[in-house]
Amino acid sequence: MTADILNSTARRFPATDMPVGLMLALVAAGLPRTVLADLGIVAPESSLLYYVLALAPFAAWVVVALVRGTRRPFLDFLVLGALYGLSLLIVHQVLWDVGPSLGHSPPESAVAFAAGFDPAWRELALRVYTSGIAMMIGLGSGAAVGVVAWCAQVWRRLRGGRSAR
Rank of each mutant, 00 (worst) to 15 (best):
L88R: 06
L102D: 09
A115H: 09
D38R: 02
Y50M: 06
L89V: 11
F77M: 13
A43N: 00
R71P: 01
M23V: 11
L124E: 08
E45H: 13
L89Y: 08
A56N: 00
P57C: 12
E45C: 00
S46E: 04
I41N: 00
E45I: 01
L26P: 06
D118R: 12
A37S: 15
Y84R: 00
V64L: 07
W96A: 06
T130Y: 00
L80E: 07
W96S: 05
A110H: 08
L80D: 10
S47A: 08
L86M: 15
V35R: 03
R33A: 14
A43K: 11
P107A: 13
A28K: 06
G69V: 10
L83T: 04
T70P: 03
Y51R: 07
L22R: 04
V42G: 01
E123P: 01
P73L: 09
P100N: 09
L86V: 15
L22T: 11
V111W: 01
L26T: 09
V62Y: 02
H92D: 15
A114H: 09
V67G: 00
A43Y: 02
S101A: 15
E123Y: 03
F58H: 12
L88C: 01
A56P: 01
T130R: 05
T34H: 07
V98Y: 10
P44H: 03
V64F: 06
P107Q: 11
P32R: 06
G30D: 08
L88F: 10
V67P: 00
A114Q: 09
A29D: 08
A25R: 01
A28Y: 10
L53S: 05
P44C: 09
A65M: 12
L95P: 01
T70N: 03
R68N: 11
L24N: 08
P119C: 11
